[in-house]
Amino acid sequence: MLTLHNVSVNIDDTPILNEFNLEVPQGEVHAIMGPNGSGKSTLSRVLMGDECYQVTQGAIMYQGEDLMALSPEARAHQGLFLGFQYPVAIPGVNNMTFLKTALNAKRKALGQSECDAMSFMQLAESAAQTIGMDLAFLKRDFNTDFSGGEKKRNEILQMLVLEPKLVILDEIDSGLDIDALQAVALGINALRDAGRSFILITHYPRLLELVQPDRVHVMMSGQIVMSGDYTLANTLEEKGYGWLASNTVES
């Protein structure tokens, strides 16, 4: 599904990712953990085509195609979805209007007919119910006056409606209470299938207990320094990252 080969990324000439390598097969859920500043969010932004980041070398292949050749919106049309760590609020743009616009933009790009208002309402309401989201949030301005947890739920709602093929969730669990965390996990598990892949960027093993990823990677200084199954998250919880500082052996 996704392969990064020797990818290096700078921000304003400061290297963030350093010959980064990662392979996410179709249908698998991969978690990426690591200390602050290790480049996790940079990775997610690069995958979505954020122009603030300069890819200085390497290749990113998505479903056999060069991802770097695609614009951000084209990546979304091809099935990439980034759940933002800090979703923006857009006063004046209705949540439903935004979501319908995004869905129809994707459908149009794929040569499909646009979703009419009635079908869309049913789709959106069904998705909201899946994650226990109050339907009133659908009618409000996009993320305006939403709490942190509500914004994260809204990200999951979009994921459910847009049905992407590769989902990247950047610290989707940060700032969530227990109920919200379970709702997020519910959304992820509802969408999990053999044709869809996930990259979960997180600091906490709690979400991983609920989702149970296929692989857990540890990222430090712009590289993956260790990989394992989801029990690796518990090890990190116990020991922290210090013991990995000089250990770059991949288990």
Binding site: A76, P87, A105, K106
Partner: peptide, 10 residues
């Protein structure tokens, strides 16, 4: 940036 990441053209 957010809107384009959702597939909406600039």
């Amino acid at each position: 940036r957010y809107l384009t990441a959702r597939g909406i053209s600039l």
